Amino acid sequence: MLSLLAASGAAEPIYWENLGLRPYLFEIGGFQLRFYSLAYLLGILLGYWHLSKMIKAPGAPMAQRHADDLFFYCTLGVILGGRLGYAAFYKPELFASADVFKLWEGGMSFHGGVIGVLIAITWVAWRGGLNWLRITDYIAVNVPLAYMLGRLANFVNGELYGRPVEGGFPLAMIFPTDPDQLPRHPSQLYQAGFEGLLLGLLLLAMFWKTPARYRPGFLVGIFTIGMGLGRFLMEFFREPDAHLAHVVVETGLSRGQWLSLPMIGVGLAVLVYALLRPAIGSAKASAPQQA
């Protein structure tokens, strides 16, 4: 996609509507199967499939029944945490009405979704007597590629576009939902590539090609640092929400960047902890080991 955009936008800004995109796969009557909904569904199913594959490898901290429970509770955590986090971090006025429950109108927070998933993992780990930190390692590996699908859906929807860019930039794009109709960064694609594809491939390689899974906290530490750093950097290209533009003016950073700073700090602390602790089990183990 980036290569196509660069080739077609070398001289003039790219008009989103000329790409032949639409926010839904098909429409029957008044019902639309939207790509954003599909992104959530496919991301969760892909994560569940890969987690089930991961726990068959040596050193797994859980059984399939635990993966099934995680699939259910993490789905609730993503949806409820994402929506309530959006209201808490970005639009507190939503709590004053039933609008907080109107998921179809959009508005989800990545940081809220993370909190929701952590609560879900805590619940499953407590019920099953499992090692909480090792479960977070296994879940973290599956998040970035699902996140990538969500950002690609944002692009297909023509929403959450980037900040204005100088003329001549090869990826400059004009989105139909932009009231100013200015050439902008397609920041959804930047986030899909950096926080999604790149981080996802890194974590997959670490899990399958290295003994990283035997250091509790290592994988989730890398994930947390990568997501926090990626979000912090990408926010320089992303247009702040209109009702939060004052945060950038007053502090120099967006709300998303302020939320990402503690995320980076927590990730660094967890990574140091993982490196200072001795590895468990053995990469040569031939059977799953209960942590």
Rank of each mutant, 00 (worst) to 15 (best):
G29F: 02
G29N: 01
G29A: 03
G30I: 03
G30T: 09
F31E: 03
F31I: 08
Q32M: 09
Q32C: 02
Q32G: 04
L33K: 09
L33F: 13
R34I: 09
F35S: 09
F35K: 11
F35L: 10
Y36M: 03
S37H: 13
S37Q: 14
S37N: 14
L38Y: 12
L38T: 15
L41C: 10
L41N: 00
L42Q: 12
L42H: 12
G43T: 04
I44R: 02
L45N: 11
L45G: 11
L46V: 13
L46T: 12
L46I: 12
G47F: 04
G47V: 01
G47I: 04
Y48N: 01
W49D: 00
W49A: 13
W49T: 14
H50I: 12
H50T: 13
L51H: 06
L51M: 07
S52N: 14
S52K: 14
S52T: 12
K53D: 10
K53A: 11
M54D: 05
M54N: 02
A57W: 05
P58G: 08
P58T: 07
P58W: 10
P58S: 08
P58I: 08
G59K: 04
G59C: 01
A60C: 00
P61K: 06
P61S: 07
M62T: 05
M62I: 06
A63W: 00
A63S: 11
Q64T: 09
Q64R: 15
R65V: 15
R65K: 15
H66P: 01
H66Q: 14
H66K: 09
D68N: 15
D68K: 12
D69H: 14
D69E: 15
L70A: 03
L70S: 01
L70Q: 02
F72N: 12
Y73Q: 06
L76A: 14
G77I: 07
G77E: 07
G77P: 09
G77M: 10
G77T: 11
V78K: 04
V78S: 05
I79Q: 08
I79F: 10
L80V: 14
L80S: 08
L80K: 10
L80W: 11
L80D: 00
G81K: 07
R83G: 09
R83D: 07
R83M: 10
L84V: 15
G85D: 07
A87D: 09
F89N: 03
Y90D: 05
K91T: 15
K91F: 13
K91P: 01
K91C: 11
P92S: 00
P92C: 00
P92I: 02
E93G: 15
E93L: 12
E93M: 12
F95M: 08
F95P: 05
S97W: 00
A98W: 11
D99P: 08
V100Y: 02
V100Q: 05
F101I: 13
L103G: 00
L103K: 06
L103E: 01
W104T: 07
W104Q: 10
E105G: 07
G107D: 08
M108W: 07
M108L: 09
M108R: 04
S109G: 01
S109Y: 05
F110M: 03
G112N: 05
G112R: 05
G112Q: 02
G113H: 02
G113L: 03
V114I: 11
V114R: 02
V114C: 01
I115E: 06
I115V: 15
I115P: 06
G116A: 02
V117G: 00
L118M: 13
L118R: 08
L118P: 08
I119N: 03
